[in-house]
Design a protein around this nucleic acid. Sequence first.
DNA 1: CATCCATGATATCGACGATAACACAGACAT
DNA 2: ATGTCTGTGTTATCGTCGATATCATGGATG
Lengths: 261, 261
Amino acid sequence: MDARATIIEAAAQLLADSPHGDISTRAVCEAAQVQQPALYRLFGDKAGLLGATVDHVWDRYLSVKRAAVKSADPLVDLRRGWDSHTAFALANPQAYRLLFGSTVAVATDSAAEALRLLREVLERLAAEGRLRVSPAIAAQQVMAANTGVALALILRPVQNPDKGISERMRESIVAAILTDTDTDTDADADDPASTDSSAPTSESGAAVTRTPAPQTAAITLRAALPLVASGSFSANELALLDDWLDRIQNLTTVDESDGTP
Amino acid sequence: MDARATIIEAAAQLLADSPHGDISTRAVCEAAQVQQPALYRLFGDKAGLLGATVDHVWDRYLSVKRAAVKSADPLVDLRRGWDSHTAFALANPQAYRLLFGSTVAVATDSAAEALRLLREVLERLAAEGRLRVSPAIAAQQVMAANTGVALALILRPVQNPDKGISERMRESIVAAILTDTDTDTDADADDPASTDSSAPTSESGAAVTRTPAPQTAAITLRAALPLVASGSFSANELALLDDWLDRIQNLTTVDESDGTP
DNA sequence: CATCCATGATATCGACGATAACACAGACAT
DNA sequence: ATGTCTGTGTTATCGTCGATATCATGGATG
């Protein structure tokens, strides 16, 4: 096998196994059965090695992404791209941190292509007159928000145990960059998993828009609960009421026209 | 001066001057006129030194933030918090990267307090019935989006030369977490200087007049209660919940805690 | 005075990034 | 065949870094 490929493979493996994302060139050389000068002749620098390694990991990911067929609706492709971005970040946290959380290896080929694919989808949306802002600005916003949630999930899993934050942020950004006439197709024509829990309150369908959402009311009441704490309820009653309000505010979907047995 | 404070000051200075955010304990010791064992006795570890340094920079930032007076409209405070967060990231890029772009020194006191301040603002919004999601979820989303744009501005200034991305993202997230009746200001908020006075012109009238009355929230929730009836609650639970909401909506206690005119 | 603890200073260890110096093999032209 | 050039493998080394062992000193306190 090519020595360069062997070194990159070993570096990628060590990087994935490293808990802190820091690997040493010596360890890479030992794993790849190569001396240090060979590594420095091939990559010139440790940054070059890391860049090539991350580029390789991204390339494996992008090859799958490139093979994906374009949907008829570019909005579906946009959502798929967001989800695959988040999935890649969670699957390769160390490589992702190197690419999006540090100044090492900026603007590698794969990262540029990822951004290019995103822009292509957004330009398709713009061609259909569904974008509220320019594709360049929309791409900036989508990329920044996506990296924000991905880094939060990677770096702070304990503070952000909620796995739905990616879907929520995705729908928020989608609603922000799309025109108003397009915000009705958000929650239904999507992957069958559980992404419809993002914004069921106000605009998911015609059924709920008429009545005030109980989630919002529960949130409001819960926040105002300390004002009534003193006189009328015991501590236990308040605790139980708070539990129930929490249950209501976390309800996923309340469409009465759907799901009722 | 305290040796610990001297070391932290020197470390902060070196960190701010470092182009890549990597400082050595030896350089810190030389700058602070201290031997290495002293540093290790005081901070135990390099991570401890970095954590204390970043904590110190954050504390300076938070002292300004804490001193800021609360506005009558929590939405104004939310926007101010967002802008100051972005400004701090741009003013202290290296410290910001350490705190939000790496696993070093997670969950320090200052970072926790920053999140707590954000949650306080969001809870005030929730108490006024203007929040579409729970304060915890809204805080997650706001923080993730804010760090996303800040890191994009810091790490990729050439790819993101647009300085309005922070304001755009801010309004997108604001529109996403607020209820529909409150989302009328996102049309144009590009003015970077007058972020404090741009918003309240059109909405502060409707917003401030809304009192954080638990009675109103109870009425709203009670009206929406049939939507959550099936599935999550038993008939007896629903009956008791309805009784309690009735008790809350009939409360006659006057809230003297809030002195807003 | 004796004991103990906090601080200071020197030297050192192992790991790391990076490179110099040298050896060796093949390709090619003359 | 000889010489030169080039690419590659090997050893040894340099300077830096994080971290620590070791010893000395200087008070406090009893």
